[in-house]
Each structure stands twice: as structure tokens, then as C-alpha cells.
Simulated assay, not measured.
Amino acid sequence: MKRRLVLASGLAAALPLPAPAQSLEKPKLTIAVGGKNLLYYLPLTVAEQLGYFKAEGLDVTIVDFAGGAKALQAVVGGSADVVSGAFEHTLNMQLKGQPMRAFVLQGLAPQIVLGINPKTLPNYKTPADLKGKKIGVSAPGSSTNIVANFVLAKAGLKPTDFSVIGVGAGNGAVAAMRAGQIDAISNLDPVITLLQRSGDLQIIADTRKPAEAEKVFGGPMPAGCLYAPVAFLDKYPATAQALANAIVRADKWIQQAGAGDIIKAVPESYLLGDRAVYVDAFLAARGALSPDGLIPEKGAETAYRALASIDPKMAAAKLDLKAVYTNEFAKKANAKYPKG
């Protein structure tokens, strides 16, 4: 028996091991993200924690920032290669003449919730009451800021009618709300569920459910994704494919996972000191996470309309909406991992 084992191990050693890293143009890279603990980016964390990036031959460093706008700045500045961020940034970057392209989806809907502080606004009636008030967002210019602007624009408020304050996407955001430093908040889970359960939040717009998000935005609004400069995707297609493979595997694993599986997969710090809250937040957000990494065909159009409604420059621009995303990598990833 021992002889057989020795022979078997010898044969295994002689066989070539799968070495995806050899075919990758850039196996070592950095992903910038704004608020890694958020359920918005759960597929990124799952791909990291379950070893899906490593399985594709990648050595990925994930650098966390206070918000998506800061993560984007890291890639523009050259300190990171890829952004795990909100889809609509690809449109903003095309407008600025710095083309970026989304290539695998993490979120079907923004999962962003806008709510008011019952302590500072006890007589709140409509979103118009936020005129002159302080609204906390993860970081100015991030998707939380964009959603707040969009919802309040429907109530007749311009971005200059209220103050935007960056509060991050973790305990700092919770503390700012509870201390009454902000009158409203545009943020994500688990922050939102934590504030809601403690009575420190009254929700006025909720995009955690794809159907509700479609009502708010008038169509499918793709959210968290991996996007990169078009030049990066052109230069490193095999690397981009490996990244897409890992995220698609994570997307599919999440759809089949139980709450207990998720708790085991994420770092303890993500739970914000309350596992039950995180479980509730996960169950509320799971429907808004992508099941397959594919970006909806009308998603770019919806995102453009949302941005154009609050930005005159965007409204006047003629963008190539097909250039801001590709499903080429996600389709191949689904073919490789049909079941995750």
C-alpha cells in the first residue's frame, strides 16, 4: 500500500500542475475598493477569502478606501490597477476623456438606502424637507452621493441645496447618525440595517431590491462591478479574464450560501459587532447581488439617464454607452464555471 502511495505521489509530482499564472500577463495586481466591508462588495471579499483569485493564478492586493471616488482616484493615479466600484463611474470617466470599462458585475442593484435621522428631523414629511440639511455619504462624489442627488432632484432639490459630508461606510457612519451630526444618510448594508434596527433611521428610498431600484431609476441600474482603464483590458486580457472568473464564481457561491456560510467567509470586523444584524443585512441584500456577473444590456442607458438628470455636462454629452462595459469576460467565466 505504501509503495502504491509512493508511486502515486511520484506520478502526481511528474504530471504538470495547472499553472494559470504562466499564461497571465500580470499575475500580481492591486484592486482599489471603497468600503470593502459593505455587502455591495461581498463578491470581492468572497473571491479573496475562498481563494478564487489564487485559484486563477492571481496574487491580488485589495486596498480599501473611504469611498468609491477615492478608489477610482487610486487607479487614475497609478497606485492600483482595477477598481471594485460603482458602474456609473465608467460613464463619468468617459465624459472626462479617461475611458474605463466594466467587465464583471457584482451588484444587480445599487443597494443604497437614503434615510433621515428621526432625532434631528422629527417632523419630516417629504424629501424636500432636506433643503439646507447635512447628508452623510460614504465619500463625496461616490455612488452614495450620486443616489442622494438623484432622489432629491426628483423632489426639486439641486445638489447645492444641501450639504454633503463624507462619513465612510462603517462605524463612523453609524456614529455620525446617532450623534446627530448629520440629518440624513445615503449608505449601504450593514450600516443601514444596524441604524434601522436601533431606530436611528427612517428610510425614504431603498434600492436593495432590484424591482424597487428599477422604479427609482426607470430601468436596470447595475451597481458594484470590476472596472479598469480600457488600456488595461486591452493589454492584459488573460488577467482580466482570471479576475472575471473569480468574481463569477463568488457571485454564484453567494446565491447558494446560507447566512452561516457568509458569516464564516467574511472577516469578524465586517459584522460591526452584531452578527444578527449582518445576517439580516445579507438576507436583505442578496437579491441585489448579481447571480452571474453579466451586466444588463440596458444598464448603461439607465445609469446615463440618472447621471444626466443631475449633471448638465452629462446631459449635453453624447457618450458611447456600449464602450463602458463588456460581457465578453463574464460569458467566458460562466462557460468555465456553469455551477460556480
Rank of each mutant, 00 (worst) to 15 (best):
M93H: 10
T90H: 01
D129H: 10
V147F: 13
Y124Q: 02
I135L: 10
P127F: 03
V83P: 06
S138C: 09
L72K: 13
E88G: 05
Q94I: 02
Q98P: 01
L72D: 12
V147H: 15
L105A: 12
L105Y: 07
S84W: 03
G68V: 02
M93W: 10
V137S: 00
M100G: 00
P127S: 05
G77D: 07
K131M: 09
P99A: 04
Q106N: 13
G67C: 11
G85M: 01
N149S: 14
T126A: 14
A139T: 14
G68E: 06
N92F: 05
A109H: 02
R101T: 00
T120A: 07
A86W: 15
T120G: 08
P99F: 01
L121Y: 13
A153Q: 12
N123R: 07
A139N: 13
A153R: 10
P122G: 10
L152W: 07
T120N: 09
F103D: 06
P118Y: 04
N149A: 13
G141A: 02
L121A: 09
S142V: 13
G67K: 12
S79V: 14
G132R: 06
N145D: 15
P127C: 01
L130F: 05
P140S: 07
G77M: 00
G136Q: 02
R101I: 04
